[in-house]
Amino acid sequence: MTRDAFIKTLCRVFAEDYSEVYRRGIENGWLEQQDREFRSDLLNRRNAARIIHNYLLKEKNIPDLSDISEASELKDLYDCRVCVNHVAQVYLRGIMDSKPLSRDGKYIFFDHERIVTSDEAEVYLNKACQIVSRG
């Protein structure tokens, strides 16, 4: 799905007004200029993690987990320097899942570049919504 479709889904799940969401999101710091400029581009998992994490942190005031060391079980966690914390927060909260790297499932990874499907977005965003509901 595209970034724009993802943001539309986010607006629906969280009852956000879609009109001017880019302006509001950028001003409030949970969207970036790239989301507006590349809104028609397909959304990968690391950008989904960034948007979800920043939305929870900056729009819903859900504080970060301070210890993210357990996320280092994701073998590709440090492949993405600028999104380590985004990935760790959504992974450790159970919002986004890992993918098996080996057949026995012993090694797992986040798979930053894989494109998010509409069905997956529904799952991620509804889990995020549940976290907000629990407070």
Partner: peptide, 24 residues
């Protein structure tokens, strides 16, 4: 090395650093 912290701050959040870790 790679970064000293990946839990950088934002306006209103100081971010988090560590004394020791298995990585950088």
């Amino acid at each position: 090395l790679n970064d000293i912290t990946f839990q950088v701050g934002s306006d209103g959040d100081h971010g988090t650093a560590a004394w020791e870790s298995d990585y950088t």
